[in-house]
Amino acid sequence: MTTWNLMNLQRHLLICNGATCMGAGAEDVTQQIRDEIRKNKLDDIIHTSRTRCNGRCRDKCVVIDYPKGTWYSVQDEKVARSIVHEQVPEEQIIYSIEQGKRKRNSHRIKGIDKYRKYTGKKNKAVLFVGHGSRLEAGNVEVRNFVSQMLPSIDSSLIVETCFLEFASPNIEDGIQACIEQGAKEVHVIPIILLHAGHSKLHIPAEIEEAKELFPEIRFTYGQTIGIHPEVFEILKTRLIDINFDIHAKHPETAILLIGRGSSDAEAISDFYKISNILNNQLDVLAVESAFIGIAEPTVEQGIENCLKHGAKKVVMLPYFLFTGILMERMGRMKESFSKKYPQLEITLAQYFGYHPKLQTVLLERLQQAMNGKSTGMKDLENFRKYVEEYGYEHHH
Rank of each mutant, 00 (worst) to 15 (best):
I112Q: 07
S155R: 12
F145H: 00
L157T: 04
I175D: 08
K78C: 11
I94H: 08
I158M: 02
I109E: 12
A80G: 08
K122S: 01
S106G: 04
I171G: 14
I93E: 05
S96R: 06
I191K: 05
I153E: 08
I191C: 02
V159L: 09
I189N: 04
T161R: 07
R143P: 04
P190H: 09
E165F: 01
L164T: 10
G130W: 03
Q181T: 01
I109G: 00
V126Q: 05
G120K: 04
E185A: 06
N170I: 14
V79Y: 04
D113Q: 11
P169C: 09
N144T: 14
F166H: 14
V159Q: 08
I158E: 01
E185Q: 11
S133H: 07
S106W: 13
K114M: 10
F166M: 15
R143I: 10
Q75G: 14
Y118D: 12
G130I: 00
A183N: 05
H187G: 00
S168M: 12
G132Y: 06
L164E: 06
G174C: 04
K101L: 13
R108D: 03
I192D: 10
K184C: 13
S147G: 14
I94V: 15
I153A: 06
C162A: 05
D113C: 11
G120Q: 09
H187E: 03
I192L: 15
K103V: 06
K124S: 15
D173L: 13
F145C: 01
E180K: 15
I175M: 01
R134F: 06
E136N: 09
E141G: 00
S133M: 05
S82E: 12
H107L: 10
F145Y: 07
P190E: 05
R134D: 00
S147E: 15
A137V: 08
D173T: 13
S168K: 13
Q87L: 13
F145V: 00
P151V: 07
E185Y: 02
S96I: 03
E185V: 02
D173N: 13
V142D: 00
K122H: 09
Y118P: 05
R102I: 15
I109S: 04
K184H: 13
A137F: 04
Q99K: 15
S96G: 05
G182L: 01
Y115G: 14
D173W: 07
I158S: 01
Q75A: 08
